[in-house]
Design a protein around this nucleic acid. Structure first.
Lengths: 362, 362
DNA sequence: GTGAAAGCGCTAACAG
DNA sequence: CTGTTAGCGCTTTCAC
């Protein structure tokens, strides 16, 4: 078929208008190549390459350059990326692996990464790993692009073996900074975020705390549990109940129901590992006839748009997702340039809204 | 620099171990090529290509094939995609252009498209257009991959001129089926969805309806307004108020406040162009001391996870996003195969939940 | 200041 | 059954 296409596209190489013409079976115009442009402009193909690559200063005369640009415009010339990539051996493209698309955190992460990449003339291809935080199967099958490097966010440490096999530089985001062979790491100060939540609740007089934890085995959630325990250490408060849930509203609601109706004293506050879980907790409260925040305080984590879609709005921890994406991409660029990459931990901040209030009397 | 790399990687072409070795400035292993594999297996480079491409049956003996596979594994050989793409003239990669990443609809769209693509051995690269539904600036700068085709969802008709310039086959999703030069179109029966909403509310006795419309100039929202007017035509009910809002919760809340506090009789039901707007409407109601659904019924559109994150859960219109993505990708595959693509319109369905109820007695 | 030429790594036709 | 060969379109020396 490729041969057929050549036949049709180049059969009249030495006469008649070569372009536009029909290529293959669907009526798509055969793309002009730099040789076509050269011919049209009456220059050599190399000159076209020089001009199009903005490398002509002092090598090609101004009128010639202008002629080339004109011919290129005329023919609708667009350089063939496959050829350029092959020749250059690099693609100026990075892959961003995320466990989910649905989550606004990752959308913002992408935005930041794409911005930083653009500054370096690099593109970003998103790969939502089908297995969530678990093993990421061959992203090269999906994002078929040849890649210069990979950034992965919030994945389990061993989820990236397939990807690492590609031998590409890897930057890990929101992941265990210890147990990793990534070239660089960018993290959030998750522990501090949880400390802030705990202090906030402590200050409001809460002593019996329930923890709605994400039932996902990844660094970011392990840190949350540990930090919460740390923060409560030596205070009058304690986690009286921990319930695990998948990261969605329904699972969060059921976990919160368990936490609120289980044996023992009822928690006056529910700390949730994510805003989605917190939304579920709010639903659970309402169904149990508890008012938020009067009877029950609820905190989230992430500050997704969901946090302000609810009423009352969620007290939660704001994660600088875009900054993480930017820092991650910059780290990758540094690695690609052979510069040493330092490990970063970005600050996070509690956003106090209406879902938390003073602990109910007693 | 590229020259340097070649030097380092291939300087000892005729002696010593060629692989692994150091390439460029960062310590990444130079990738083995099919020639390296051929040398290691003691066969010609073409044979390697045949074996790796699963095209060896009846052309290469079993032992030879096994030797090649062994050598490839040994060397960690991965075919160079840039080279393959250049040679084949196609990349088996499609671009999916969406106006937003944050929206679960588009996440599901991607899932469906990726599944259908995988069946054809095709990859999907996601391009979240920075300008939302507006003009999509050069996605080729971002997704640097060479592409075989483009699928665009919910974009303004003239937002794709840059993309179309690439001369690639284009399939449009959730877009005006008339005013388009796309090779194929896949749509949702949005009008029917709005009709269902109207009938539902009519049946509950609502006569004064407010419309919280998306202030976005795209087909999908124009249809909603028109269909609503159609559906109410000749009934006892009418749209007493229309307010426009950007597609987020806050804007939705403000628009709903305007609709509920403006002059004239207050609507007993608010039809919203999207679940996010409906979430805003619910917040507005609560702030105005109105109970949903007792004092005010609210409907959404899309059936995002947000719809069930709220309490009460939203009555909304479920859009088969994954099916749209699948159909879109299949249409693109058909176009690429030169087959005629038929225009499709997928059915949508009302999901009645707790945010709608009987109209409050006059 | 411009052109000629050498490949990047791969596939597919063709020759043995 | 296996090897040789001719490029895909581009970038980058190197001659002129």
């Amino acid at each position: 078929m490729a041969a057929d296409e050549r036949e049709v596209g180049q059969g009249d190489d030495k006469g008649g208008p070569r372009w536009p013409t029909v290529r293959g079976r669907h009526a798509a115009a055969a793309r002009a190549t730099s040789r076509d442009v050269a011919r049209a402009a009456g220059v050599s193909q190399a000159t076209v390459s020089l001009v199009m690559g903005e490398k002509w200063r002092g090598r090609v005369s101004e009128p010639t350059a202008e002629a080339v640009r004109g011919a290129a415009r005329e023919l609708g010339y667009r350089p063939n990326l496959a050829a350029r990539n092959l020749r250059l051996g690099r693609t100026r493209t990075a892959l961003l692996v995320v466990p989910a698309l649905t989550n606004d955190f990752f959308a913002r992460l992408y935005t930041g990464a794409a911005r930083a990449a653009a500054e370096h003339g690099v593109g970003v291809v998103l790969y939502p790993s089908p297995g969530g935080t678990g093993p990421a199967p061959d992203p090269f099958a999906s994002a078929r692009a040849t890649l210069d490097g990979v950034i992965a966010s919030s994945m389990a440490a061993d989820a990236l073996t397939d990807i690492r096999e590609g031998g590409l530089p890897l930057v890990m985001l929101d992941s265990d900074p210890e147990r990793t062979d990534a070239a660089a790491t960018v993290n959030l100060d998750i522990a501090d975020g949880m400390h802030q939540v705990a202090r906030h609740l402590l200050g409001l007089g809460h002593r019996r705390i329930g923890h709605i934890a994400a039932g996902i085995d990844s660094w970011t959630f392990r840190v949350r549990a540990r930090a919460l325990a740390d923060a409560l250490q030596g205070t009058a408060a304690a986690v009286v109940r921990t319930e695990h849930a998948a990261l969605d509203v329904h699972a969060g609601r059921r976990a919160a129901e368990r936490a609120l109706t289980g044996p023992g004293p009822r928690p006056t506050a529910l700390i949730c590992d994510g805003d989605m879980l917190a939304a579920g907790a709010c639903k659970a409260a309402r169904r149990l006839g508890l008012r938020v925040p009067d009877d029950l305080s609820v905190t989230g984590f992430d500050d997704l748009p969901l946090a302000t879609a609810l009423e009352p709005e969620l007290t939660t921890v704001r994660l600088p997702a875009e900054a993480v994406g930017e820092a991650g991409m910059r780290a990758l660029m540094a690695v690609l340039d052979g510069k040493p990459a330092e490990a970063t931990a970005l600050p996070v901040g509690l956003v106090a809204r209406r879902s938390t209030g003073p602990a109910a009397g007693k």
